[in-house]
Simulated assay, not measured.
Amino acid sequence: MDTHAHAPLDAGVGVGHGLADVKSVRENTPPSSEEAEAAPAKGRKRESSAKKVAPPVADAPTSEEEWAYEVAHAEASTDLAPIVGRNLRRLRTQRGLSLERLAKASGVSRAMLGQIELGQSAPTINVIWKIARALGIPFSALISTTAQTGTRLMRSQQSKRLSSHDGKFVSRALFPFDEPRRVEFYELRLAAHATEEADAHPPGTMENLVVTSGTVEIDRGEEHHVLSAGDAILFEADVAHVYRNTSDVDAVMYLVMTYAETVG
């Protein structure tokens, strides 16, 4: 079993996360004063005197099209709009896409994309799906509240750690594992005279590793390499590979993993 802890850490938010906060542009807009005055006074009087009955709980939608028409309560209005707007602008600019190009790729109008980025419109689930597909990102990337473009401090005690069954191999994520990414950074610890076998990663995956303590042997297919403290190696990790600590002390390594496609 591959306990190689630097496999992609998929901690993304599921599709259903935050659905209660999503509403269409129409439901997100309070009635205008003209609309309110247009309502019959008599009807308003009957409404105020009518007995209030809790609305029935609807069954959960079973398809993407049904989710597109789900709306939140009016008081939940603006929480999601600025989050989606900030994430959309960041992810679009990172990919060098203009609003026009993204509009053509997603089928969402340029005007609507602009309104979403400005936080003026809260898109339906269907619209978010279209944008996510066009950008080639997980749905959760657009509604995540954890994405940051500034400084991100990750305390040691809060780090994501994974270990082998026998506890002789431990990896610590040194990156925000809850965001879409193509690059991951790990601290690896391998006990004295222990071996860690890693399965092949997706095609195009590269590992850039440096040893800071101990002596480590790395086998990649028919290749065999010996690294002492200070030595580094860069190799394609899309074939099975092995880490072996031949020293009497724990080996400490730092690994940069680069994927051909976005993960997480």
Rank of each mutant, 00 (worst) to 15 (best):
D238Q: 04
T62C: 06
L19P: 00
A251E: 04
P176L: 01
D166T: 11
V13T: 08
A111T: 12
L174M: 14
L97K: 07
G204W: 03
F139I: 10
R110M: 12
V57N: 10
A7T: 14
L153W: 06
R182L: 05
V249M: 08
L99G: 04
A192W: 02
H17S: 14
L88S: 03
H193I: 03
E47G: 12
F139M: 14
A134S: 14
S24A: 10
V108E: 02
Y254V: 10
Q148K: 15
G214H: 00
P203D: 09
A251T: 11
R220I: 14
A50N: 13
R92E: 07
A20R: 13
Q157Y: 09
L227Q: 10
S213N: 13
T246Y: 01
R86N: 12
R152S: 12
G43T: 13
A173P: 04
G85F: 02
P31I: 10
R172H: 09
V183P: 04
S247Q: 02
K42F: 09
E100Y: 09
L80S: 08
R86G: 05
R46H: 13
N87M: 03
P180V: 11
L88K: 05
Y254A: 02
Q157F: 08
H201Y: 02
P123G: 09
P31V: 11
S159M: 13
L88E: 02
V216Y: 06
G136W: 06
E236W: 04
F175W: 09
E184G: 06
G230Y: 09
T215I: 11
A74Y: 10
A122E: 07
L188S: 00
I128R: 01
N208L: 08
P123V: 07
K51W: 03
T151M: 12
A229D: 03
G167F: 03
I233N: 03
S163G: 10
G12V: 08
G119W: 07
F169P: 00
D21G: 11
D10S: 13
R26M: 10
W67Q: 03
G221R: 10
G167W: 05
L153E: 06
T262V: 14
P138C: 09
L142G: 01
V211F: 01
E179Q: 15
E27L: 10
K45I: 11
V22P: 00
M112R: 09
V108G: 03
V22S: 01
E179P: 03
A20P: 00
R152K: 14
P123W: 01
L234P: 04
P123R: 04
T146D: 11
Q158C: 08
I116K: 00
A194Y: 05
